[in-house]
Amino acid sequence: MQMIGVAILSLTLLGLALGFLLGTAAYYLKVEGNTLAAELEKLLPGSQCGQCGFPGCTAAAQALANGQAAVTLCPPGGRVLVETLAARLGVEVNLAQVKETIPIIAEVQEDLCIGCTRCFKVCPTDAILGAAKQIHVVFREACTGCNQCIAVCPTESLQLKPVPVTLQSWYWERPAMTV
């Protein structure tokens, strides 16, 4: 009878101790969400433009992590992003076949702008400044060329244009591949 009492007591103590240990471990060594998705999201441009077909960069990163999207999904990221994503996910890509996108930004045609204020309300990076019935202007440094404002402009005053080349940004062209 006494043996049974010792067994019950020791097993109870053991259970409590291990349970406490597991509980503490679960509290301190908690894994929050999907770390891969969060890591991938940091690599993406983060302008939430939606050109990949996903509602924002978080969803795109989630899809990438789940293997539901290709590493070539992000048009603004260009070849550099494909390279970094492929390196992180261990995917093989032929970089020569990835089309390089030239950086583009939106530009307001002053003579067409009617100051309707629609564009700056949709701009994900606050890159457009304007007020009602005043000509709007795009800050080149903040514009990501995401196309959102082009869709809402009633007069086609906003147009996407390649970023102008300056003495600071100019560099030698890639030599022609003749051989």
């Binding site: 441009p45 983060g46 302008s47 939430q48 260009g78 550099v80 950086p103 994900p124 990076t125 606050d126 890159a127 440094e141 903040a142 990501t144 940004s169 100019w170 560099y171 030698w172 062209e173 890639r174 030599p175």
Partner: peptide
Amino acid sequence: YAKGELAARERIKLKQEATRKLA
């Protein structure tokens, strides 16, 4: 060309960091 391209990528990265913060 390669050095210029690398510098351009660096500039794009800086811009992306800035626009991400804006967003």
